[in-house]
Amino acid sequence: MAKELIINTAWCKGCGICAAFCPKGHLEVKNEKVREKEGTDCILCGTCELRCPDYAIYVQEKKEA
């Protein structure tokens, strides 16, 4: 089943925990919000979701639109 990384920018408080512990260095905080970096790949490990205090980033199975 295909998974995807979802960021809920409205809930992100920009603490940077997800970016700091992302094993691929795929995340960064810009203007107090997390975003995906260009040129790196997300391996959908979900480490960010485990430590996000605000439930603003998570990995989930892709849902049919």
Binding site: A10, W11, G14, C15, I17, P53, A56
Partner: peptide, 10 residues
């Protein structure tokens, strides 16, 4: 949500 806690609060 989002909850009332500070950025980075555990």
């Amino acid at each position: 949500l989002p909850h009332i806690w500070c950025p980075g609060c555990g």
